[in-house]
Each structure stands twice: as C-alpha cells, then as structure tokens.
Amino acid sequence: MPEPLTDTTLAPGTQASVTEVTAAKDPSKGSGPGKPRSLWGDAWFELRHRPLFWVSAVLLVLLLAIAAFPGLFTDAHPRDGDLTNHFLTKPQLSHFFQADWFGYDGQGRSIYARVIYGTRASILVGVGVTAAVTIFGGLLGMLAGYFGGWIDSIISRIVDIFFGLPFLLGSMVILNAFAERKVYVVIAALAFLGWTTIARVMRSSVITAKQADYVTAARALGAGTNRILFRHVLPNALAPTIVVATIALGAYISAEATLSYLGLGLADPTISWGIDISDAKDAIRDNPHVMLFPAGMLSLTVFAFITLGDAVRDALDPKLR
C-alpha cells in the first residue's frame, strides 16, 4: 500500500505561494519520479510480488510443457496395453516418473503415461474454448454494451436465444452429428453454446464503465471510439470477464470430460483426461486410482487457471495494490 500523500505545501492559498511551491519543487532536484509507468507495467510489477501468482504460473508452465512435449516426461507409451498389468499394479508412489508410478488401467496401460499424453487434448479444449468464447462473446458483449440501441437489442436477443439452449444437452446433440470427434470439433461445439455468459458479463460491465465521468471527460477531449473503448472502457470492464473466463475454463475441461464420459466427447484414438475418467467408471470401486489421477490433474489445472485469473484481476486494480 503506497503511503497516503501528506504534502502540506500542496495547497497554495495565494498566487505567491504557487510560485513558492514551484521553486521548492524543481524536479531535477531530489528523487526523480522515475520513468513513466503504465497500468500493465504496474500490474506485472504487482504480479511478481504475489506468491499465489507464482504457484499458478509454475503449475501452468509445467502443464503447457507437458501438453507440448509429452515425450519428455515419460518413456512409456499411453496406448501400449499389456494385459498382464490389468489393474494388477497399484500406484507405485516411489517410482517417480516411471510407467508404473500411477499404476495401470483396465487394459494394462500406464496411467502416468496416459495422464501425460492426455494433457494436450484437455488443455487444448479448455484454452481453446475459453479463447474462442472470450473473443467472440467479449466482442459482442462490448459492442452491445457500448453502442446500445438496435445493436444491443439484436445482440441481446441472440444471446437470450442461445442462453436458452442447455449447454450439455446442446453439445451432445451437436457432437452426435459428427462421426469423427476431433479436438477442434469439441472446441467448436462448446464455444458455440458457451459464449453467451461472457457476452452478458461483458455487456453489463461495459455499460457501467461507459457511464463513468472519465469516459465523458475523454469524449470531451475529442477522443475517438477506439481510444475510449480500449483505453477507458475495456480496462475498467475486464475484471469480471477475467474471473468468469478463468472459472469457465475449468468448466470447459470438465465439460469435455463429461461428454467423453457420456461417449460423445473425444474418442479413441485421442487421449484425454475425460476419456480416462470415463473409462474408469466401471473400475472405481476396486481400483479408485484409475479415476484418481486423471481427475486430480483436471482439478489441478482448473485450480491453476482460476488462481491466475484472480491474481491478474487484482493486479489490474490499482485500488487493491
């Protein structure tokens, strides 16, 4: 928390004291104000001082590395099943990074390898859907909120219509129409039904922000629409969207898992946590570890993203510094 200002010479009672102040405050003397800073620069500075940010950042970097280069983390092949290992091997918690670290699943495949190789699909779905939804929904919400009038009427009605469609049931119906359910198909289906939440959140926070006096002040200075939107409205309307988006990211990964569990999400030969959780459904009674590790990874990822979202939101609010 910066120190509140206690400069008693601030208030010139007369013109004379204004000049006194001027003389007393030659900026070349004393400690200079340093180089100019910006919101994003300050936010980054702030982030670096938050332990929670580092926890989530390290986790996310690790997850992204796993997603990008799964081969670096395991020698075992996720599709090689050796039925001699059929459920027999429980997790060997001391066998770090080895094929039997997390044990074997029903078809004798290394759960550790599957968790590692499943990361890519799950993260892709989560990040992909969130990105698509934030860009598309955020943009529409921003347009509706900022311009109002008939643009708002039309966009809001479309949002209402889409909001009425059940998310899971809707995606099941859509995915059912596709014979081959690749990652991008799942992303498209989830994004198609999921963008409305972000659009609504964005619209309402843009409406609040655009009514602020500082927006009027910028207009009075002759600022154009772009400047007003991206300098004034958006930075002040972003916080709720960031929170909703990061929470939704976890929900999308879970939705993919749910769909896979129902047999309508990703399917073999793709590997994903969702598929594994789905496969584990018949075995959890006797072999809970089959479910535990993919589900644990899923929770960890969701946690990392939500924590990051919270930290970023706080860092972007100068009042919370």
Binding site: T6, D7, T8, A11, P12, G13
Partner: peptide
Amino acid sequence: QELYAIKGLPPNLLKTPSGCAFNPR
C-alpha cells in the same frame, strides 16, 4: 477579493499528526 484557504489536506486517520491534529494546517 480572495478567499482565505486553509492550507493542506484533511487529516489521514491512519496517521494523525502528533500533538494537535490540526497543526500541519
């Protein structure tokens, strides 16, 4: 002609000046 102005700022309650709180102004 000109208004008399009490100089300075209203007190900050986290850091009330020592002695008489009004002394800086």
